[in-house]
Design a protein around this nucleic acid. Structure first.
Length: 271
DNA sequence: ATGCCAGACCGCGTCTGA
C-alpha cells in the first residue's frame, strides 16, 4: 500500500498538476495540505473521476486539509485538534482507512519569530503532541502525515546557519518535533535514507529548485506496528520541476501488507 | 533588513507562505 502526503499550495490552481501526479504515482491514500479553498470549492468530482474517495476540511484563502483513498471507505474520526475551541484554522483531519488510522496535518508556519504566530505554532505543536500520545496509546496502526513546517536536523536544510532564527528551524520547534518523535514515532523518510540530503520543499525564490536549495519539512511518522511494515519512502522531486507546480513535492511510503520481520516477542505475545 | 515567487481575494494592492 502506497501512502503519500502533498502540500499542493492551492488545490484549484494546482488541479492539473495534482491530477497528473495522481495518475502517474498511483498512490492508494493521500493527505493533502494547503487547499486554500472553502469547503464548497473542493474539486471533488475531478478527484472522484480518478477513482478516489475524499474527505476534506476547507477554509477560505488559507490552510485546508484532505484525505483521499482508492482502497476503501474513509471513516472520519476527527477534524481539528482538541485543546483549543477557539482555533478556527483547518489544519487537522483524521480518518481510519484500510485498517490504518491517519492524521493529516498542516502545522503552522510560525514566522515571524518571536510573535503571536510563533506562539500559536508552539501551542499547536503541544496540542499535537498531546493528541499523538493518545493515538499511540490506542495501540492501533497509526500514522501522522503532512507539512510539519520543521526541519528536524542540520541535514534537512541547505544552509542551516541561515535558518537558526527562523520559525521552521528554531531550537524550541525542533525540540518539540523530537518530543513528538520520542513518544515512539518513526520518521519514515529519514529511516529509509539515513544520512542522505533529501528535501521535500524548494522556495519559489532565487531559483531554489535548480540549485537544490531545499528543506525537508513534510514528514510521515509511523507508529511501531506500521514502522515494521515500512519497505520504501521517497520524494517525487521531479514534480517540483513541472509547470505551475507547488513549492512542495509529494512524499510517499510503501507499506507491506504484513510486518517485514517478526517483532521481538514479548512475554505476553508468546504466552 | 529586504526582495526574490506565487496564490487568493471585496484584486488592479495586500496578505500569507517558508
Amino acid at each position: 500500500m502506497k501512502i503519500a502526503t502533498y502540500n499542493v499550495n492551492g488545490v484549484n490552481g494546482r488541479l492539473p498538476v495534482l491530477l497528473r501526479w495522481l495518475e502517474e504515482a498511483q498512490p492508494d491514500i493521500v493527505c493533502l495540505q494547503e487547499l486554500k479553498a472553502p469547503q464548497e470549492r473542493f474539486p471533488e468530482q475531478s478527484i472522484r473521476d480518478l477513482g478516489y474517495d475524499a474527505i476534506w476540511h476547507g477554509q477560505k484563502s488559507w490552510n485546508g486539509v484532505a484525505i483521499l483513498s482508492r482502497v476503501g471507505e474513509i471513516h472520519e474520526t476527527r477534524r481539528g485538534l482538541p485543546g483549543d475551541p477557539d482555533d478556527s484554522h483547518s489544519r487537522y483531519i483524521e480518518a481510519a482507512v484500510n485498517g490504518i488510522l491517519i492524521g493529516g496535518l498542516y502545522l503552522p508556519n510560525g514566522n515571524p519569530r518571536p510573535g503571536p504566530k510563533f506562539d500559536y505554532k508552539l501551542k499547536w505543536f503541544d496540542r499535537l503532541i498531546e493528541h499523538a500520545k493518545g493515538l499511540l496509546d490506542s495501540g492501533l496502526p497509526v500514522m501522522l502525515a503532512g507539512d510539519f513546517n520543521v526541519m528536524p536536523t542540520d541535514l534537512d536544510v541547505y544552509k542551516p546557519e541561515r535558518w537558526l532564527d527562523d520559525a521552521l528551524f528554531a531550537p524550541e520547534v525542533r525540540a518539540a518535533y523530537f518530543r513528538l518523535l520520542d513518544q515512539g514515532w518513526t520518521d519514515a523518510l529519514r529511516t529509509i535514507h539515513p544520512g542522505e540530503v533529501i528535501y521535500t520543499f524548494w522556495d519559489y525564490f532565487r531559483n531554489a529548485y535548480a540549485r537544490n536549495a531545499g528543506l525537508r519539512i513534510d514528514h510521515l511518522l509511523l507508529s511501531p506496528a506500521l514502522a515494521d511494515r515500512l519497505v520504501d519512502a521517497q520524494v517525487d522531486a521531479h514534480v517540483r520541476g513541472w509547470e505551475k507546480t507547488s513549492d512542495h513535492a509529494p512524499v510517499w511510503i510503501e507499506l507491506a501488507d504484513k510486518p517485514k520481520r517478526r517483532r521481538k516477542a514479548t512475554a505476553r505475545q508468546t504466552a
